[in-house]
Amino acid sequence: MSPTPASTPASAARDGKRNVYFFATCVIDMFAPEAGFDAIDVLERSGVQVHFPVRQTCCGQPAYTTGFPEEAAKVAAAQLDLFPEPWPIVVPSGSCGGMLKHHWPKLFANDPVKLAKAEAISARTIEFTDYLLNVADLKLDSASRRPLRVALHTACSARREMGTLECGRELLSRLPGVELVEHAHESECCGFGGTFSVKHPEISAAMTSDKLDAIRATDCDAMVSADCGCLLSLNLMLKKRRDLMRGQHIASLIRERLDGGEAQ
């Protein structure tokens, strides 16, 4: 892991390592750092050199979806030069990844120079589970075999915008001992929706509450997601309900299982 994009492709090539940029997302940076930390760790275990551009902030989605695309564009513009090497940009969130991939180019429709940069970033953006499953060569056979029933919540943008629903499911199926349990209305939104949860708190809470009830009804041992926005909303409602279960990022589960496996 290098905290800055310091290592050159040449040195990386000498190591025979793959290189990726890691776009952590501001939610993870500030509210769920362990998810980002675990994602980096898991990537490294699969032999990937992870670069964390320290000048990164936020994908701009909150302003963009609330109706302030010009503010989002300024935030995105400040980050267009953070990914100079032609490496994949791994994002541990379908939602923020979707913003980079599908919406950054729209922000610069009238600025050819920035547009070209945004399009280059878009082309290289890949969601974490997608990268882990389809690019990285992470061996999961040595992971813990302890039986665990896991419910998976897939963020709507991961499901519909990034098309990574199957990646999460497939990764879980490759973890020994892990059983994926389905919950009712699985394809339905968890109710977070960014500023939606602030502008329409009652509707948002009703959706989150129903999602938790459905997951709780499965009698699962753990709940995972590849999106920390959804997890924040779900976990903080669990906390308010005095329910001790907490959802975790799929990267954290994978790391735990790998560590557990080594210990066995």
Partner: peptide, 14 residues
């Protein structure tokens, strides 16, 4: 924290 804490615990930075 406004509507957020009606049904959820407060959003707190790590």
């Amino acid at each position: 924290q406004g509507g957020w804490t009606q049904a959820r615990a407060p959003l707190k930075p790590a």
